[in-house]
């Protein structure tokens, strides 16, 4: 039997270090919000051969001195600007077209977003997280007990915090797909926790174990193969699309990968230990 609960402090420490670093980073450098939230224009162009970002920056700065130029894979370039207007975008592309002998097909995408759009997205997302969390808590309360519910929700918030921490620490751009991914993590990572709690509930009825620590350890051990295998199969598909997919799908797959790994970790190392800590005061029945 695995001794998971005994090392509770270690597991909490690992998570807290990451989350704490994330919080500091959040205060110091914040999240790297993309145009979806800040508003602005992104023009993505396929140059088709290797190029010098400096040359493109010179062209872009003619239209907006504050624009940034980012090289993305496959010899593509992304020009990000806060002030580029709808009329300037075709002119900018024409300049690039002349310089690099491009065709119209090489204008992969343009994207201009007003600043109000992102705020609504954030508001909606926060509302969804709050409502979903409360409803899931109520369901777990009814099917298990309130302590399981709270432990599961803490594990869930842990996953969201870890994902946000990774994003602020590595300064990965945050766009609307990040919100969708966070909300998906909410739905999926609760799954793992419930499977373990279900096993705890079942083992408790058999009266085979005599204290909460052993009960939790045994349940985690019995479900360990399942936990690992499910994470593996999920990672197979989502990592495949992350490695092979186009940039905009990668943006979506990355937070999912982080969330899935964190979700599996938290269900084993966070949710169950929290539950045991809380139950220890009670008499084992």
């Amino acid at each position: 039997m695995l001794k998971i609960v005994e090392r509770t402090r270690l597991w909490f420490a690992i998570s807290l270090i990451i989350i704490f670093a994330g919080l500091i980073s959040l205060v110091v450098q914040g999240l790297n919000y993309g145009v979806d939230f800040r508003g602005g224009t992104v023009v993505t162009v396929n140059i088709g051969k290797d190029f010098d970002s400096k040359e493109i920056r010179q062209i872009a700065e003619k239209y907006d001195p504050q624009s940034t130029v980012r090289k993305i894979e496959g010899n593509q370039v992304e020009i990000i600007s806060g002030n580029l207007t709808d009329e300037q975008v075709p002119k900018l592309f024409n300049d690039l077209k002349a310089k690099y002998n491009l065709t119209d097909k090489d204008l992969l995408s343009t994207n201009r977003i007003g600043p109000s759009v992102g705020n609504e997205l954030k508001r909606n997302a926060l509302k969804s997280v709050a409502v979903a969390t409360i409803l899931m808590l109520i369901y777990i309360w009814i099917r298990f007990e309130i302590k399981s519910g709270v432990a599961a929700i803490i594990a869930l918030l842990h996953d969201v915090l870890i994902t946000i921490s990774v994003y602020t620490l590595l300064q990965i751009p945050v766009n609307s797909s990040f919100i969708a991914a966070i909300l998906t993590i909410l739905g999926y990572s609760i799954n793992d926790t419930i499977v373990i709690f279900d096993r705890i509930r079942e083992n408790r009825r058999t009266h085979k174990y005599h204290d909460y620590t052993t009960l939790a350890n045994a349940s985690i051990t019995q479900t360990m193969a399942r936990s690992i295998n499910t994470v593996m199969t999920t990672l197979f598909t989502i990592t495949a699309i992350y490695i092979l997919g186009v940039p905009s799908i990668k943006e979506f797959a990355l937070p999912l990968i982080i969330g899935i790994i964190s979700g599996a970790y938290s269900s084993i190392f966070i949710a169950s230990p929290i539950w045991v800590l809380w139950k220890k005061g009670e008499k084992y029945v």
Binding site: D86, K105, S109, R112
Partner: peptide, 10 residues
């Protein structure tokens, strides 16, 4: 508020 063009090659 939002204007987005997605080229056919994407």
């Amino acid at each position: 508020a939002t204007v987005r063009t997605i080229g056919p090659s994407l």
